[in-house]
Computed example of a mutant assay.
Amino acid sequence: MSESAPRPLRIGILGAARITERALVAPARSGGHRLVAVAARDRSRAEAFAAAHGVGRTHGSYAELLADPEVEVVYNPLANGLHGPWNLAALAAGKHVLTEKPSASNSVEAREVLEAAAASGTVFMEAFHYLFHPVTRRLHELLASGELGELRRAEALVAIPAPAPDDPRWSLSLAGGALMDLGCYGLHALRMLAPFAGGAPRLVAARAGERAGA
């Protein structure tokens, strides 16, 4: 007897962020999952997003969405500085959480999210999607097998065109900046090599530059 198909997930979206269409809407549809609700502080934006992407209904606040009993999974694509607080709120509401990276703004907040996720009994996942790419999986297979010998050195480089000067990803108050927005990918990738490198990396030196006007 063949196993039954997995039940579609019922997903609620916090905010009408630009990244949501590519990062969530298309994959959810291809997987047969349901977008049941979207919330935005400006309800008209939520309504426009729902109409464009076939979302079931809208809420005028993030708290309303978390209280929606039909929502079982919350996707959090808000500005970096809002990831931690709303991840904590979603976990407290008993929802599974898929959060854009980084999952928190600083180490104190990250520890709170980690502990809340561990205690929640739900699934919490940070959207470092590269980890599931066949190239990354093959790399880890090669390292695990020893086929290429021992890992001696690893470098990570991540580069994209710079956001516009007024883009919120530059905002310090919103936990923006090159490291939080993009560099976290490189750090995450290096940390994922820990099983093959004798343990997690440790900080030896760091360098940063200040962006004029930011």
Rank of each mutant, 00 (worst) to 15 (best):
M1C: 10
S2G: 15
E3G: 10
R7W: 05
P8Q: 01
I13T: 03
L14E: 04
A16G: 04
A16F: 00
E21P: 01
G32N: 00
R34T: 11
R34E: 10
L35I: 05
V36S: 01
V38G: 03
A40H: 05
E47T: 01
A52K: 10
V55F: 02
G56K: 08
G60W: 00
A63T: 04
L66Y: 01
D68E: 04
P69A: 01
V71S: 01
Y75I: 09
N80V: 15
P85A: 12
W86G: 13
N87V: 11
N87T: 12
L91W: 06
A93E: 02
G94D: 05
H96Q: 08
L98E: 06
E100W: 11
A104W: 10
S107W: 09
S107V: 15
V108F: 13
E109W: 09
V113S: 12
V113C: 13
V113W: 09
A118N: 08
A119K: 08
T122V: 07
M125R: 15
Y130S: 14
P134Q: 07
P134F: 05
H140M: 14
L143M: 11
G146L: 09
G149F: 12
A154V: 07
A154S: 11
A154W: 09
E155M: 07
L157N: 14
L157H: 13
I160L: 15
P161C: 08
P165S: 02
D166S: 04
D166F: 01
D167S: 09
S171T: 07
S173Y: 14
L174F: 11
G176L: 01
G176E: 06
G176A: 08
L179M: 14
L179G: 02
G183Q: 01
C184G: 06
Y185I: 15
H188W: 02
A189K: 06
A189Y: 12
L190E: 01
A194L: 07
P195W: 13
G199R: 03
A200N: 05
V204N: 07
A206W: 01
R207E: 15
A214T: 14
